[in-house]
Design a protein around this nucleic acid. Structure first.
Lengths: 131, 131
DNA sequence: GGATAATGATACCATATTAGTATCATTTTG
DNA sequence: CAAAATGATACTAATATGGTATCATTATCC
């Protein structure tokens, strides 16, 4: 079972690098050199981060990206949500079948508890703490 | 993100049903009737549980399965391991790339913490508690 | 002993998700 | 206007998940 997929991983690493450059625009070219990841894939990821509002992009020559938010406000849990969908561990088939009626069943309680814990832990990790 | 896949779900439900019958042998035929799951898929799952040592099988006419262990000793975490591989959240690409050297990095610590929590919670759920 | 009803073993297929590529349009700078 | 960057979008490859199909083997019961 994976908690974090490759997109999320790449995204986090790229954001760290961009954060290090602070207000200096960082291009894909530069990121590929430093982080050794496939260029077209990275481009796609950065475009997604841009659309999600975590990056600000600059087109044209000397273009690139800067963070749209302070690095301390970009949380790992946000990246997971963007690339892996909502963190809803209890949206599993399990519940629906095994205990379709009660909210009080043991399993659902446990899974809700796990989810809260995972969520709060992932929310406590941000780009600053990863740099 | 899913915590529990369909195999695991089916397995848990089948084990509950088999547990209810206690020492009476339960056939696939009976399980399909009661649990409404695809017969060939269920057969595969039961064969896996048998090989994993959670079930004892009886071949031939009137054959079927009984639990190989008391239901209180069959844990949800075991089923997850069998059908979804080892519960190793920190085996993600993330760590390897971002902090290849230190064991002391924040992310790794957090992920190890999350893993321990998830593990202990899932270990506290067994077939008895699901029945 | 043979028909029948069960599991064992194994190979295959379908779909979804994940990972990655390719291409062309658009924008900015020099 | 050429070059260097991102925007948009469609496509492909690999892997994981969910499910089928088939034949072999075994035990029971008549």
């Amino acid at each position: 079972m994976k908690l974090i997929t490759r997109d999320t991983d790449y995204a986090a690493r790229a954001l760290c690098q961009i954060a290090r450059n602070e207000n200096r625009i960082t291009s894909v070219h530069e990121l590929v050199d430093e982080l050794k990841m496939p260029r077209p894939f990275l481009r796609k990821i950065l475009q997604i981060l841009n659309k999600a509002g975590l990056l600000k992009s600059f087109r044209g020559k000397n273009g690139g990206f800067i963070l749209a938010l302070p690095p301390g406000k970009i949380y790992l849990v946000d990246l997971i949500r963007i690339f892996q969908g909502p963190l809803k561990l209890n949206e599993c088939v399990f519940n629906k079948h095994l205990c379709p009626d009660t909210n009080a069943c043991i399993l659902r309680q446990k899974i809700n508890g796990i989810e809260k814990h995972v969520f709060s832990q992932l929310k406590s990790i941000n780009i600053t703490s990863l740099m």
